[in-house]
């Protein structure tokens, strides 16, 4: 993989740091009057999901990470593993529980999502911002409550529990924001 000089740093660039692939979130250059310029970089570790901050001397080179983000279709789960397919190449990829992370609560079979590959191995799965899920279990709603004030927990067909308005009942399909795990309306 190529090395990148600090002058090539930009948001989204993937670098290897401490053995993990990372993605640049922000890059701030500081040049003191008499001193050398430096780059203060915030990165997301694509394996742990943690945000870290690193400072480089301007002109320093860092090893790039072979990371690709591909649109894939979620096929099925074997229980411990999850199977995806690149609809362009028909290549199939197997993602383990760790790589799946929170995404497993939002994906139903046939859904499209983004799978991040590092050295052609899947490391993480990002569901669309909004997904349609079916309520499989929740307390009966209160009659007449249509304003959706208050709320109650509801278990979705993926297993994830989302706070929904009181009027939602079992069997209904609801829209869920995957970034916040919040109810975002009905169909």
């Amino acid at each position: 993989m190529a090395n990148y000089s600090t002058s090539q740093f930009k948001n989204g660039l993937k670098l290897m740091l401490d053995g993990n692939p990372c993605s640049i979130i922000s890059n701030e250059i500081r040049k003191p009057g008499k001193g050398q310029a430096s780059n203060k970089v915030r990165l997301k570790d694509l394996i742990t999901g943690k945000t870290l901050e690193k400072t480089f001397k301007s002109g320093e080179s860092v090893e790039g990470a072979d990371v690709m983000e591909l649109n894939m279709q979620y096929l099925y789960s074997d229980g411990d593993t999850y199977n995806f397919m690149d609809p362009e190449s028909f290549d199939q990829y197997v993602v383990d529980e760790t790589g799946m992370g929170d995404a497993k609560g939002y994906l139903v079979e046939q859904d499209m999502c983004v799978v991040t590959l590092w050295n052609n191995n899947p490391i993480s799965v990002t569901p669309p911002n909004h997904v349609m899920l079916e309520v499989v279990d929740t307390d009966p709603g209160l009659k007449g409550d249509t304003a959706g004030t208050g709320g109650k927990p509801a278990t979705m067909n993926t297993g994830v529990v989302v706070q929904v308005p009181l009027f939602i009942s079992i069997g209904e399909k609801v829209k869920v924001d995957t970034r916040t795990n919040e109810y975002a309306g009905r169909t």
Partner: peptide, 8 residues
């Protein structure tokens, strides 16, 4: 290095 520490 002193300058870098001061800056950051």
């Amino acid at each position: 290095l002193q300058i870098l520490l001061f800056t950051h």
